[in-house]
Write a protein that binds this DNA or RNA. Structure first.
Length: 457
DNA sequence: TCCTCCCGCCATATT
DNA sequence: AATATGGCGGGAGGA
């Protein structure tokens, strides 16, 4: 079934716009079918590593301009460091000005950590494709080629592609091949994610966690375990919560594979992370909060510290590509007890309702407007977190969907009310935790206060 | 020091 | 078995 051998088409990019000439001294191989002289083309590079002379930037000079235009911050960072200053530190290396430091150690201009950041890499990646590609032409992406052209190991490309996929900006076609969709559907996807986020009551969960922290700050230390339980029950009252990958109506995943079980972390995590922004009132989410919520959802019994740490690490990865997409930007929240790293949503304001809302503007490409309530899609693509060797669709999740449906009615209101009007409607859903209402009310208040104090650091 | 997060080993999933 | 994917977390660069 996998028509993997479709080498018939070629990359659409690198010709579309100015793109990356890449015609530089070094690499620059803009070959159509990448055939590295050193390695076999069809195997995992594993370590293509640095190509001859280390010139991380020059070949992409104009790309940089492109990037700068989009993200001034990046530009600043670059300027901060002398791009041309090839030698940093490296005491014994007399004067590198003499070009070839020859010898055996030409370790001089090491790209420097920042130049190898995922964020930068993502910018380069994105610069190769138009935001709104013409669906009529071939928009395939060959991971091998990209990895090679950007001079990074494949592993990094997976990181990028995975989150892009979570936003449906790309979709897997076959082994090593993805199709670029760009920002078509992006709003639709975000709308869907927002709906799911509301259904999952992320806003409430966030408040619960904040409340917890708030209390701990005082002396009520010891309320955490209780809180955890509430949160968990709330999400997936007995089974697993929403470990589902939200699909898009029109863009069903072609070429199965993607729907198989192993869809775990990054993709789903990325969607959830985005959901948090979309349901948060001051669209700001701290990594800590995000990590806690994401952890709370699966692995019920986890107080593990290392797990938390790992989660944070993943979030940084995701945040980097989301930042490259200009959907979020890094900020700091100054809460009681110090400032924490957080991110602020800078993406489009998305329409709250999943149904009845079409794209903001009529798109030329007829991407089947299957305007479907998110829950449908969600229900359709549920799979358990844990890799059950045989089942990708966890039966117990069906019930979750049911409950979600019942919740659903609540999302058709409150277009922009600052505080989720949860007390009223959600009271029924939260029935098992009546006392929670009172707490939520209190939290809401805190939330407001916090908001007012957000701006001024 | 703490915040970020690169790097790449190696378990899993696909072919 | 060979490859493709992608969890995961040690540990190092940077502020």
């Amino acid at each position: 079934m996998e028509n993997e051998k479709e080498n018939l088409f070629f990359e659409p990019h690198k010709r579309g716009l100015m793109k990356t000439p890449l015609k530089e001294s070094t690499a620059a191989n803009t070959v159509l079918t990448e055939i590295q002289p050193d390695f076999g083309p069809l195997t995992t590079p594993t370590k293509p590593k640095e190509i001859s002379q280390g010139e991380p930037w020059t070949p992409t000079a104009n790309l940089k301009m492109l990037i700068s235009a989009v993200s001034p911050e990046i530009r600043n960072r670059d300027q901060k460091r002398g791009l041309f200053d090839s030698r940093n530190g490296l005491p014994e290396t007399k004067d590198c000005l003499h070009e070839h430091l020859s010898g055996d150690e030409y370790e001089k201009s090491q790209p420097s950590r920042k130049e190898k950041s995922l964020g930068l890499l993502c910018h380069k990646f994105l610069a190769r494709y138009p935001n709104y590609p013409n669906p009529a032409v071939n928009n395939d992406i060959c991971l091998d080629e990209v990895a090679e052209e950007l001079n990074v190991e494949r592993r990094r490309i997976y990181d990028i592609v995975n989150v892009l996929e979570s936003l449906h900006m790309v979709s897997r076609l076959a082994k090593n091949r993805y199709t670029w969709h760009g920002r078509h559907n992006l709003n639709k996807t975000l709308g869907t994610l927002k709906s799911v986020g509301e259904e999952n009551k992320y806003a409430e969960q966030i408040m619960m966690i904040k409340k917890k922290e708030y209390e701990q700050e005082f002396d009520f230390s010891k309320t955490y375990s209780i809180e955890d339980h509430i949160i968990k029950s709330n999400t997936g009252q007995n089974g697993h919560p929403d470990m589902c990958f939200v699909e898009l109506p029109g863009v069903e995943f072609r070429a199965a594979s993607v729907n198989s079980r192993k869809d775990k972390s990054l993709r789903v995590m990325s969607q959830k992370f985005v959901m948090l922004f979309l349901v948060s009132t001051p669209q700001i989410v701290s990594l800590e909060i995000a990590a806690k919520i994401l952890i709370g959802e699966d692995h019920v019994e986890d107080l593990d510290r290392s797990k938390f740490k790992t989660k944070i690490r993943r979030l940084y990865d995701i945040a980097n590509v989301l930042s490259s997409l200009n959907l979020i930007k890094k900020v700091h929240v100054t809460e009681e007890r110090g400032r924490k790293p957080a991110f602020k949503w800078t993406g489009p304001e998305i329409s709250p309702s999943p149904s009845g809302r079409g794209p903001v503007f009529p798109l030329p490409c007829s991407d089947l407007e299957a305007k479907r309530p998110s829950k449908d899609n969600c229900a359709k693509n549920l799979f358990s977190t844990r890799g059950k060797p045989n089942f990708t669709r966890h039966p117990s999740l069906i019930k979750l969907v049911k409950s979600i449906e019942s919740d659903r009615r609540k999302i058709n209101s409150a277009p922009s009310s600052p505080i989720k009007t949860n007390k009223a409607e959600s009271s029924q859903d939260l029935a098992p935790f009546p006392s929670k209402m009172a707490q939520l009310a209190a939290i809401c208040k805190m939330q407001l206060e916090e908001q007012s104090s957000e701006p001024r650091k």
